[in-house]
Amino acid sequence: MKEILKEIEERFGPIWERVQRPKLAQVGIEPAKAVPLLTWLKEHRGYVTLVHLSAVDWIEQGEFQLTWLLGNPETEERLMICSRIDRENPAAETVSGLWPQAVTYEQEINEMFGVSFPGSPRQGVPFILEGWKDIPPMRRDFDTVAFVEKHIPGREGRKHIDTRTYIGEKFGEKGYLHD
């Protein structure tokens, strides 16, 4: 893993890296260089499988993190390419030209986080949410409980126990919970 990380650094400039396991490493790179890096890894270094593409909402930093997880079936090594994009008007380059299955991931991220991938087919086409009018539900500022109370009728008599208060009361330690 060390060699490929070194080579990436030489070719693509400063990166943030971490080897998590002997066959799994994480690479952070600025968004403009992410797709060239992915292309290079696929074409020249045998990382031909796109295992996963995911997004994380870092609301405190005002960023979304996209992670492309690549697999090399010959050496059985995996590389996570991470890239942070701005939370306002988030957009990222599509990799649907490299891996056709990325279309579905990008469609889903578009729906769940509101990140757009210009040029990717099926952007804006409903994937799971049909007729959704609220903000994308996987964003952390989306209040699920308020949404449910407003839109989804339930059955009377259901008792809700707030986990935080319950644990606080039970163990009598307010500082036990970090807030």
Binding site: I128, D134, P137, T144, V148, I152, G154, R155, R158
Partner: peptide, 13 residues
């Protein structure tokens, strides 16, 4: 009554 998914944005209760 929604079970453990009672507060999910996308499931009926």
């Amino acid at each position: 009554n929604g079970g453990m998914y009672w507060d999910s944005y996308n499931t009926i209760n």
